[in-house]
Design a protein around this nucleic acid. Structure first.
Length: 312
RNA sequence: GCCUCGGUAGCUCAGUCGGUAGAGCAGUGGACUGAAAAUCCACGUGUCGGCAGUUCAAUUCUGCCCUGAGGCA
C-alpha cells in the first residue's frame, strides 16, 4: 500500500506551515487537497504557498487550471492518486494538505462516483413553471424515480436534487450512497492529522489573515481576474475573498463592508470544515500546547510520523 | 439647571390597550458521493436600566434615581 501523510483542518489553522516543516524533515512532496488552489492567478486569496516554498518543496495540484475552467472531486481523485503513486515510486512520502473535506475523504476512502451524465433535469420540465417552485417540482420528480434518494435529500437542496436526478435519468440507478461507515477502510497506508485550536483563536487568526491578504493586494488580484474576463458564475468566483471583493469592485458594497463579509464567510467556512472533519474518526487531532517546554505541533506530528513509518 | 427622545437577546430594534416577550443579523450544532471556499437543515430565558408606588398581577401605568443622545439656557 502506498504511504501517505495527511494534514486537514479549518482555514487559517496552520496546515501549510506544518506541512512545510514536515516535508523538510522527512523529505516529502506536498499534494494540495484544496479545491481553489488548483486555479492559476488566485494566489493571495487562496493563501497558496509562495514561489520560494514551492521551489524548495515540490507541490502538486496547484495552478493546474485556468480560473474559468471547471474542476471536480473526480479530477482530484484521479490526479491525487497518481501523484501519490509516483511520489512513492520515487521513494518519498507524499503529504496531502487540504481543507476541502469532500476531496480528502473521497480520496482516502475511495468514493465510487457514477459516470458523468450530461442531462439538465430542468430542461425536461415545463418551461412555464415559475422559478419559485422549480425546486419542489424537481424534488417531486426525484421522489417518483428514486424515492430513496429523495428521502435523503432535503426538499430545498436544489443542487443535490439535480445531481441525483442526473444520475438516475442517465443511468437508471440511484446515486451511490454506500457510506457512513463508522470505520471506513482507507486506500493508503496513511496517518491523518487534524489541526485544532480554540474557536476564538481560530477566528482571530482568520481575521488577521484576511487583513494581510488585503495588504498583499487581494483587490488587485480580483480586479485582474475580472479583467481577464473570468465569468462571474465560474467556480473561481465562488471562492471566499473573491466573490465579496468582486461585489465591491462592481460598486455593490463598500470595501469596508466587503472585507467584513470576507471575514465572516471565512469564519463560517471554518465552522463547516470542522463539522466535516469531526466525523472522520481516523483523524488524530493535534493542537498547540501553551507554556514553557511545550512540544510544538510539528514535534507532535513528527514523532507520530516517525513511529508510523519507522523512519527518523 | 430645564426640556425632549432613548435604555428589551452578543448587535440593531419591534412589542406587550397591564397577564413576565420576538424579528433580523451575529453565533452554535448538523448534513454532505462529479460546482464543495459550493449547497442545504435545525436552534432564540433575556435581572425587558435600578428602586419604590398603584394593582390580584408591572417589562408595560406613576414617581424618584442612574445612564446615553439631542435641544434650550
Amino acid at each position: 500500500m502506498n504511504r501517505l501523510i495527511v494534514i486537514v483542518g479549518p482555514t487559517a489553522s496552520g496546515k501549510s506551515a506544518l506541512a512545510l516543516e514536515l516535508a523538510r524533515h522527512f523529505g516529502c512532496e506536498i499534494i494540495s487537497g484544496d479545491s481553489m488552489c488548483v486555479y492559476q492567478g488566485m494566489d493571495i486569496g487562496t493563501a497558496k504557498p509562495s514561489q520560494a516554498e514551492r521551489q524548495e518543496i515540490p507541490h502538486h495540484l496547484i495552478d493546474i487550471r485556468k480560473p474559468g475552467e471547471s474542476f471536480s472531486v473526480v479530477d482530484f481523485q484521479q490526479l491525487a492518486t497518481s501523484a501519490i503513486e509516483s511520489i512513492n515510486e520515487r521513494g518519498k512520502i507524499p503529504l496531502l494538505v487540504g481543507g476541502t473535506g469532500l476531496y480528502v475523504q473521497a480520496l482516502l476512502e475511495g468514493y465510487q462516483f457514477n459516470p458523468t451524465p450530461n442531462t439538465d433535469p430542468r430542461s425536461e420540465l415545463d418551461i412555464n413553471i415559475p422559478e419559485s417552485v422549480v425546486t419542489s417540482v424537481l424534488h417531486d420528480k426525484l421522489n417518483s424515480v428514486d424515492p430513496v434518494a429523495a428521502a435523503r435529500i432535503h426538499p430545498n437542496d436544489r443542487k443535490r436534487i439535480q445531481r441525483a436526478l442526473e444520475v438516475v435519468t442517465a443511468e437508471h440507478r440511484s446515486i451511490s450512497c454506500d457510506k457512513i461507515s463508522p470505520d471506513p477502510t482507507l486506500l493508503f497506508d496513511c496517518i491523518v492529522f487534524g489541526l485544532s485550536m480554540e474557536r476564538q483563536d481560530l477566528y482571530r487568526r482568520i481575521d488577521a489573515r484576511v487583513d494581510r491578504m488585503l495588504e498583499a493586494g487581494l483587490v488587485a488580484e480580483v480586479k485582474s481576474l475580472m479583467l481577464q474576463g473570468v465569468p462571474a458564475d465560474s467556480t473561481a468566483f465562488q471562492a471566499i475573498g473573491y466573490k465579496e471583493i468582486a461585489a465591491c469592485l462592481e460598486g455593490e458594497v463598500s470595501l469596508e463592508e466587503a472585507v467584513a463579509r470576507v471575514k465572516q464567510s471565512s469564519r463560517r467556512y471554518a465552522k463547516r470544515q470542522l463539522t466535516w472533519f469531526r466525523r472522520m474518526s481516523y483523524i488524530r487531532w493535534i493542537g498547540q500546547v501553551e507554556g514553557p517546554g511545550a512540544i510544538t505541533t510539528f514535534q507532535m506530528a513528527a514523532s507520530q510520523v516517525a513511529e508510523k513509518f519507522a523512519i527518523k
